[in-house]
C-alpha cells in the first residue's frame, strides 16, 4: 500500500493549493488526485483589483470562475441603476453556464476586494471532453446535476408564484 502511495506521488506529485480549491468546488468534487491535477493544468489563475470588472452582463461568456481568495459582487441592470444579485466568497463559483455555450452573461461580476480567481474555460473543457472523455464526462455530469438542481428550484418558485397569483 505504501509503495502504491509513493508511486502515485511520483506520478502526480503533491496536492497543490489550487487542487484543494478545485476539490472543494461542487463541479470538481469527487475527482481523484490525478484528475484534479489534469484540471489544474488547464485552469487559469487571475488576479483582480477592488472594483475591477471580471465580465459584463450580456457579454458572451467563455467559462466558469472559482473564487480562490476575496469576493465577487454580481449585479444586474434594473431600470436606471444596478441591482445587487449576490456576493460570492472563497470557494464559490459563477459563470458556469458559459461552459456550455456562448450565451450572454446574465449579470456583471465585479471584484469586491483584491480577489484571486481560477478560470475554467469552454475551449479547455471541450478539449478535455475529446482528449479525456472519462474525466470530461464526470465534470459534465456534475455540471448537469448543479444545473438540474437550479432548474428544480426555479420551477418550484415559479409554481409557487403562479399559485400565489391565482389566489
Amino acid at each position: 500500500m505504501k509503495i502504491l502511495e509513493a508511486l502515485k506521488k511520483i506520478m502526480t506529485g503533491e496536492k497543490t493549493e489550487v487542487m484543494r480549491v478545485l476539490e472543494s468546488t461542487p463541479i470538481f468534487s469527487g475527482l481523484n488526485d490525478l484528475e484534479l491535477k489534469k484540471i489544474e493544468i488547464i485552469t487559469h489563475e487571475r488576479e483582480y483589483v477592488p472594483g475591477e470588472i471580471v465580465f459584463h452582463e450580456n457579454e458572451p461568456g467563455a467559462g466558469l470562475y472559482i473564487i480562490r481568495r476575496g469576493s465577487i459582487k454580481l449585479t444586474k441592470k434594473s431600470g436606471a441603476g444596478e441591482a445587487e444579485v449576490a456576493v460570492l466568497k472563497n470557494g464559490e463559483f459563477f459563470g458556469e453556464l458559459a461552459l456550455l455555450d456562448e450565451s450572454p452573461r446574465s449579470a456583471t461580476a465585479t471584484a469586491g476586494e483584491k480577489t484571486q480567481i481560477l478560470g475554467f474555460f469552454r475551449p479547455d473543457f471541450l478539449n478535455l471532453l475529446s482528449t479525456e472523455p472519462k474525466l470530461g464526462a464526470k465534470v459534465l455530469l456534475k455540471l448537469s446535476q448543479i444545473l438540474a438542481m437550479r432548474l428544480r428550484t426555479t420551477t418550484a418558485s415559479s409554481i409557487k408564484g403562479a399559485a400565489e397569483n391565482g389566489r
Binding site: I41, H44, E45, R46, Y48, E52, V54, F55, G61, A62, G63, F121, R122, P123, D124, N127
Partner: peptide, 24 residues
C-alpha cells in the same frame, strides 16, 4: 502548455477571455 499558460497570464484581464478563445 506552460508556455501557453504563461503567455495567457500576461494578457490584461479585459482582453483575456477573447485572447483565450482566439488561441484555442
Amino acid at each position: 502548455r506552460k508556455m501557453r499558460k504563461s503567455l495567457i497570464k500576461i494578457v490584461p484581464n479585459k482582453y483575456f477571455e477573447t485572447f483565450l478563445v482566439l488561441l484555442f
